[in-house]
């Protein structure tokens, strides 16, 4: 193992990436556009209506709650909709996530309401409710984090971007090197496969971790994401997750000879990972088989750990099982990738 040679590979590969303006800007612009776009779509800033869930005795789920239940229900420009009693917990959660602005429980002996204290809409609805005639309701606290969808989805978007950058940046690029004969030229030098692969991994690590950190920091400037845990812990998760995804790319890159095949294989890996890893929606409550499959994806473990740190304030120790799974996966990928590595297309 020769550090000078590894350093040379890292430097050359990084130059190539940085000078490839189209690829570089793509890996920056895509996640930013998605974060901003999603924040816009899910923020509900443009909606004139407030959304209030109502639980009451003998209220059918489809029916519109009668104004007779409480004078507050006569208020205009508010969308009152009925909620089944057993849905209470779920809707309270939605209140926490700004998907519903308020929930009121008008059942005899209950008489409560929930608002997200962080939400301006919740504040106004609370004022309206208090100034209305009728039975006085007591405030219940919303359990758990009161977060925005964008807070929940940001690790997903960054994770997806990481996944594409790692898998294509290694899997596709090395296959291209093999096909055009660059690997053959390197094989004629004293450079070993391990040195070459380490150089590729490190170069990609620095770039992907750098890009992800920068995109997170930039979007955080105006999105102000919820951050209950430590940024340092989040960085550790980012590094471990990136490493695992890169080694997964190596697995594809180690033997494949044609760019078309590697492209197909990479798509075959990334699409299920995107759907099953909880990038866009939580896997909770889905089919147990799907949940089992999702555990096979390194992205699932990365995102679960990142969200636990950001949203629940988990420590590194608490997410350690996920990190261990990731490291175990990368060791397997790395071993297969390095042992099976082929320089030429013969």
């Amino acid at each position: 193992m020769n550090l000078r040679r590894i350093g040379a590979v890292i430097y050359a590969r990084s130059l190539e990436f940085i000078r490839d303006r189209s690829a570089l800007s793509w890996s920056f612009v895509m996640p930013i556009v998605m974060v901003v776009g999603l924040a816009f779509i899910f923020s509900g800033e443009g909606q004139p209506l407030f959304k209030v869930g109502v639980i009451a005795d003998n209220l059918a789920t489809e029916a519109e709650p009668s104004p007779k239940l409480h004078p507050f229900l006569t208020t205009q420009h508010i969308d009152f909709y009925s909620v089944a009693a057993d849905q209470q917990a779920a809707v309270v959660k939605k209140v926490g996530r700004h998907q519903v602005d308020m929930l009121i429980d008008l059942r005899a002996g209950q008489q409560h309401y929930w608002v997200n204290t962080e939400s301006p809409k919740g504040y106004f609805l609370e004022l309206l409710l208090k100034s209305s005639e009728g039975a006085k309701l007591t405030q219940e606290t919303v359990q758990g984090q009161q977060i925005r969808y964008v807070d929940w989805v940001i690790p997903g978007i960054l994770g997806m971007n990481m996944m594409f950058n790692c898998l294509w940046g290694v899997g596709y690029v090395i296959v291209r090197y093999r096909k055009n004969g660059y690997l053959k030229r390197l094989n004629a030098t004293p450079l070993t496969a391990t040195e070459f692969l380490l150089g590729q991994i490190i170069s990609r690590m620095v770039l992907v971790v750098g890009v992800s950190t920068l995109v997170f920091t930039l979007t955080n400037l105006f999105m102000h994401f919820v951050m209950e845990g430590s940024y340092l812990d989040l960085l550790v998760v980012l590094i471990v997750g990136t490493f695992t995804l890169i080694t997964m790319g190596l697995l594809v890159a180690s033997r494949v000879r044609s760019e078309e095949l590697s492209d197909g294989l990479l798509n075959l890996l990334t699409w299920p990972m995107m759907l099953l890893s909880g990038v866009w929606f939580s896997m909770e409550g889905t089919n147990p088989i799907m949940q089992g499959l999702s555990q096979l994806s390194p992205l699932t473990h990365t995102l679960t750990a990142a969200r636990a740190i950001m949203l629940d304030g988990a420590t590194l120790w608490q997410v350690a099982p996920h990190l261990l799974v990731l490291l175990a996966m990368s060791l397997v990928f790395l071993a297969i990738g390095a042992l099976g590595f082929r320089w030429t297309t013969d």
């Binding site: 050359a12 055009n180 030229r185 004629a188």
Partner: peptide, 13 residues
């Protein structure tokens, strides 16, 4: 030292 019949190098260097 080796010069192949056709040699590809890395892009952008």
């Amino acid at each position: 030292g080796i010069q192949f019949q056709s040699t590809a190098l890395q892009d952008f260097l």
